[in-house]
Measured scan of single mutants.
Amino acid sequence: MAAGGDHGSPDSYRSPLASRYASPEMCFVFSDRYKFRTWRQLWLWLAEAEQTLGLPITDEQIQEMKSNLENIDFKMAAEEEKRLRHDVMAHVHTFGHCCPKAAGIIHLGATSCYVGDNTDLIILRNALDLLLPKLARVISRLADFAKERASLPTLGFTHFQPAQLTTVGKRCCLWIQDLCMDLQNLKRVRDDLRFRGVKGTTGTQASFLQLFEGDDHKVEQLDKMVTEKAGFKRAFIITGQTYTRKVDIEVLSVLASLGASVHKICTDIRLLANLKEMEEPFEKQQIGSSAMPYKRNPMRSERCCSLARHLMTLVMDPLQTASVQWFERTLDDSANRRICLAEAFLTADTILNTLQNISEGLVVYPKVIERRIRQELPFMATENIIMAMVKAGGSRQDCHEKIRVLSQQAASVVKQEGGDNDLIERIQVDAYFSPIHSQLDHLLDPSSFTGRASQQVQRFLEEEVYPLLKPYESVMKVKAELCL
């Protein structure tokens, strides 16, 4: 049975990233139509530049190519590739079939990587351009969430054990800070992308030097003109047959890092959902379990974690691919890159769409948070109580021993009897502590235990987050809708 299948058929496997999760716009960027249309555009740009620099290419040939950029006979191309065992030459023939007058000058002087690699770089750039505003929107939604809850005390956790208090907004800023680093890295790697350009079979530009009869300047002009037509500021000066596969490492490393950030955020949300302090959106008709109707599973956060793990592992592909590119190139890269580049971007696209949807509907339960604080705060307040007693004339050592005994009794009630923490009640009825009984409410005010959390939130948002989001103001209103 021949390899390949009808990918629109229910009898043929289709990647869930495309069929179930990723956005239509990201799927289109990695589609065959987008790819092969870009090949034709690159052939047109090459012909236009070659004509401008004096090669015998007519206006009629150029116009014929322009008129057929979208006229792609995919069936013919597939048949040609089956016959020739070469995808680029299959599309040269297919393009030439609908451009008979231009057929002889299509791909003039070029090698397969002229269309293959340059198209990949265009796709990487455009895919990054799709991700950047999506990530900015996630940051914006979380920034709104953090600002609104900047002063809401909550129990902090280290080692997932109760620690000092923080605020809900401050905790959210930990998430935002990681995503801001990801946004900066995505922008950097996007701006650092260079075009492969017009380089020939081993990167020496020998074929173009021959076409222009040894004119170095025209060869350099050709490279520059096509690079500018493709919208790049610069091209690699040095290439082998391909652009260095280190570029793929750079791009997928940034995406993998984004995956790590999203995994951490969504894990926190899942843990908070278990504590009943916070939940992701839950639709009115949504079913959490087929057997347990009360369940409210954090399905979206779980999906993000599941896909983020996949995204983090994909960076190993370009690392290994770059390491086995012998001399000017081997074909070890080809099949692998067809999979890992598309999957990385479709996965990143999915987790950003999902995280935006989550961040637009996060639900906080202040009463649950308050109750958990009441359970733990008495123990945390013991040092403040000791200091207040010393100020009232008591002995630190005597007070410490009193607190120690009462704390152990209260802990026994919590752990052995399943009761509430009654340390404060014990202190309130103990005559030894009568000098500070009137101060206990103040000493137990949760806001006095959150330090500068709310001020940190305000400063972080104003100095770091809002300036970073400013270039994306025009796209901030787009909502994230999930079908599944």
Rank of each mutant, 00 (worst) to 15 (best):
A3T: 14
G4L: 12
D6C: 12
G8Q: 14
S9M: 13
Y13H: 14
F28D: 10
F30R: 10
S31F: 03
R37A: 15
T38W: 02
Q41N: 07
W43N: 09
L44W: 10
I57C: 10
D59T: 03
D59E: 04
E64F: 01
M65A: 01
K66I: 03
I72G: 06
F74C: 04
K75R: 05
A77E: 01
E79K: 15
E80L: 10
K82A: 13
L84S: 06
L84K: 06
R85F: 00
R85C: 02
H86R: 03
V88P: 03
V88A: 13
M89W: 02
H91I: 08
H93F: 14
H93C: 11
H93S: 03
H93Y: 04
T94P: 13
G96E: 06
H97W: 05
A103Q: 01
I105L: 05
I106A: 09
S112W: 03
C113L: 11
V115T: 12
V115S: 04
D117L: 03
D117K: 03
T119D: 00
L121W: 06
N126L: 00
P133S: 04
K134N: 14
L135K: 08
V138N: 07
S140V: 12
R141Q: 01
A146G: 02
A146S: 05
E148P: 07
P153Y: 01
T154C: 06
T158H: 01
F160S: 10
A163E: 00
A163R: 02
A163N: 14
K170R: 10
R171W: 00
C172V: 03
C173N: 08
I176C: 01
Q177Y: 05
D178Y: 14
L179Y: 10
N185F: 05
N185K: 09
L186S: 08
V189D: 12
R190E: 00
D192W: 03
G200I: 00
T201V: 02
T204K: 01
F208D: 07
L209R: 03
D215V: 09
D216V: 04
L222E: 01
D223I: 03
V226L: 12
K229I: 06
F232I: 01
R234P: 01
I237V: 09
T242G: 10
T242R: 03
Y243N: 15
I249Y: 13
S261I: 03
V262D: 03
I265A: 11
T267W: 13
A273E: 06
P281A: 06
K284M: 07
Q286D: 06
P293I: 03
N297G: 15
P298S: 14
M299T: 12
M299H: 08
M299L: 03
M299N: 09
E302V: 14
C305H: 15
S306F: 07
S306C: 11
M316W: 03
D317A: 01
L319I: 01
L319K: 03
S323N: 07
T330I: 12
S334H: 09
A335N: 08
I339S: 04
I339F: 11
E343D: 05
A344R: 08
L352R: 06
L352K: 11
L352N: 00
L355T: 01
E360G: 01
G361D: 04
V364P: 00
Y365A: 14
V368K: 06
I369S: 09
I373P: 10
P378L: 09
M380F: 11
N384W: 06
I386F: 13
I386A: 01
M389R: 00
V390Y: 06
K391Y: 03
K402M: 02
S407M: 07
A410L: 02
V413P: 06
Q416I: 15
G419M: 00
G419E: 04
N421R: 13
D422V: 02
F433Y: 12
S434W: 13
P435I: 12
P435Q: 11
D441V: 08
T450G: 08
G451M: 00
S454T: 06
Q455I: 00
Q456E: 02
Q458H: 09
Q458S: 13
E463I: 01
V465C: 11
P467C: 06
P467Q: 00
E473I: 05
S474V: 13
V478F: 08
C483E: 02
